[in-house]
Each structure stands twice: as C-alpha cells, then as structure tokens.
Simulated assay, not measured.
Amino acid sequence: MNKGDLATAVAEKTGMSKSAANQAVETVFECITDTLKKGEEVRILGFGNFVVSERAASTGRNPQTGEPMEIKASKQAKFKPGKGLKDAVNG
C-alpha cells in the first residue's frame, strides 16, 4: 500500500472525499515529520512510537577500493510498534 492507496482507504472508510482524505493523510505525515525534526517522540497509543535515534560517527570501508572512510554522525527516524499493532499482526 502506498500513500495514495492509504488516502483512498481512508476516504472509503470515513465517507470523506478522496481529496480531503489525501489532505488528512498528508497532514498526519507532516505533523509526525515536524515533531521528529524537533527531536521529540510521537506516541500513538495501541499503534506505536516514532522516535529519533542518533547514530555516532564511525569508520567504514569503501566497498570498491577497500580504503577506510569516515561516516558522519546522523539522526534517523525509527518506528517501534505498540502492543495493539503487534497483536493485530500476529493474531
């Protein structure tokens, strides 16, 4: 399922127009992104948590030449599924 499919499913389940559902989906993703940019968590009870984790700088190897190279420190978004989602997937 892609973002367009998600918007279509939301429209069908809620009776919203497809354009309104698409805007709602876009707004949810935008809010999650903005919150993570601030370094804060997004907790959705029964679904899961979106968190930002920090990855330290490290030394890696260039796969083509085998020479060492520096990998910069970075932040990455992670999703930790909640119990409700785990139970739904495994049930």
Rank of each mutant, 00 (worst) to 15 (best):
M1K: 13
K3Q: 06
D5S: 09
L6I: 03
L6H: 05
L6N: 05
A7C: 04
T8R: 14
V10S: 02
A11T: 07
E12I: 04
K13Y: 09
G15R: 03
M16C: 04
K18L: 12
K18P: 00
S19H: 09
S19W: 09
S19K: 12
A20T: 06
A20C: 08
A21V: 07
A21K: 03
N22W: 12
Q23T: 11
A24V: 14
A24E: 08
V25A: 05
V25P: 00
E26K: 09
T27A: 13
T27R: 14
V28L: 11
F29V: 05
F29G: 02
C31W: 11
I32E: 10
D34M: 07
T35C: 10
L36H: 01
L36M: 11
K37M: 14
K37V: 15
K37P: 00
G39T: 03
E40M: 10
E40I: 01
E40F: 07
E40V: 02
E41G: 04
V42T: 13
R43E: 07
I44H: 02
G46H: 12
G46F: 06
F47D: 00
N49I: 13
N49S: 13
F50C: 08
F50W: 13
V52S: 01
V52M: 12
S53D: 15
R55K: 14
R55A: 13
R55F: 14
A57D: 12
S58D: 11
T59E: 14
G60T: 00
R61M: 06
N62K: 06
N62S: 09
N62P: 00
Q64C: 11
Q64E: 10
E67L: 07
E67Y: 05
P68V: 03
M69E: 04
M69A: 10
E70F: 10
I71N: 03
K72W: 07
A73F: 07
Q76G: 11
A77D: 03
K78E: 04
F79D: 13
F79I: 02
K80N: 09
P81S: 15
P81K: 01
P81T: 02
G82E: 04
G82R: 07
G82W: 03
K83S: 08
G84D: 03
G84Y: 06
L85G: 00
N90E: 12
G91C: 08
